[in-house]
Design a protein around this nucleic acid. Structure first.
Lengths: 202, 202
DNA sequence: CCTACCGATCGGTAGG
DNA sequence: CCTACCGATCGGTAGG
């Protein structure tokens, strides 16, 4: 409900009703609305930023790493677009507080990825004019917003113009292009287009 | 105030105070809060989507067009990041209503751009595997979110870690990388790196 | 453009 | 986990 209506827009009344209890009962589990918020986003950021370093370790080659992180991250957010929406809303609502969380939870693996990119540049596999930190930031932005608002903006790339905005999953066509943009803006020579493009219509 | 706190988060009381009048006086100009919202976003979308076709006409060559649209769009949103924030919030808050507005205001020039891209593909200047509509959607997502949340996420690419999140303008380093990602994911051969990169630090 | 005021809903508490 | 209730604030109106 935070994802759909925002923090102030989602009342404790509504949230409690959705869980099947009354408002005071909800406030027994989370003594304040603010605490409920913290619980939600802490869980979210933790899940996300614990997954990334694990993937980075698992994969070996540069291209393989890119691939694994791209797949895993997009899978994580595609599985539930509300995850991206909540993060995006928090980023908009409380930039200062989120800055701290980003430093703690995101910065470490963002730096890790940046270093891999620099190594790739030395080896000539990655475009020399890539700005590693800025690239990582841009791609996070791209993935987050694409998943979060695909039901409205994403319909620009929809085959059949359905009247209702599908709130469900992001179309494979958009995912494929996001991965392509990320890869082609990074690597000098595109090797195997190993990412799943089965959903592509064109 | 809609940009900073969201529609429900920004009270008519606060808005009126910011303008220097009382709440009922504000409701004289906009008979309802909903009408104030419509007025704000209609003005915003109109400005943006009137500018794009004009630029597309003005520039002639493909590379020149890309360049002009990129510069103009980034300039428009960089001049006031709140513009991007409001649009992003509306996209999150009311996807269905925004879908209609997008069809009317954005679809026309998005199609225009997509056709230019297809022409570029026939001429071999644009990567063959670009999905035109999906690419336009992705880049809009990239620009909107990058400008909107640069004060929090964007600090991943900040040189000196200032404690406060600067709410002002987006750092040139991020802008340069956004333009580079957009261009290198589109064109086969990067010609003149004509976009301003004077602010780049590395 | 103002003062005064409305019912509704908000987050949260008392007390069981 | 509930009923009952609190003060504060919300969008909006009456009337000038």
């Amino acid at each position: 409900m935070f994802a759909a209506r925002g923090f102030v827009g989602a009342s404790l009344q509504d949230i409690a009703a959705a869980v099947g209890i009354r408002k005071p009962s909800l406030l027994y589990h989370f003594s304040t609305k603010e605490e409920l918020r913290r619980s939600v986003i802490a869980q979210l950021l933790a899940h996300w930023s614990n997954a990334v370093p694990r993937i980075l370790e698992a994969a070996s080659s540069g291209e393989e790493q890119f691939h694994a992180v791209a797949e895993e991250t997009l899978a994580f957010f595609s599985a539930d677009p509300d995850r991206a929406r909540i993060i995006l809303r928090e980023l908009l609502d409380r930039p200062d507080e989120l800055s701290s969380l980003i430093e703690l939870q995101v910065r470490p693996w963002a730096t890790l990825m940046s270093n891999y990119i620099r190594k790739g540049q030395e080896q000539g596999r990655v475009h020399a004019d890539v700005d590693p930190e800025a690239w990582v930031t841009a791609i996070i932005n791209l993935v987050l917003s694409s998943v979060a608002i695909h039901s409205s903006l994403g319909r620009l790339a929809a085959e059949r113009p359905s009247k209702r905005a599908s709130t469900s999953t992001i179309p494979p066509r958009l995912i494929a292009e996001i991965v392509r943009v990320a890869r082609s803006s990074l690597f000098v020579n595109q090797q195997t287009p190993a990412v799943d493009t089965s959903g592509r219509t064109e």
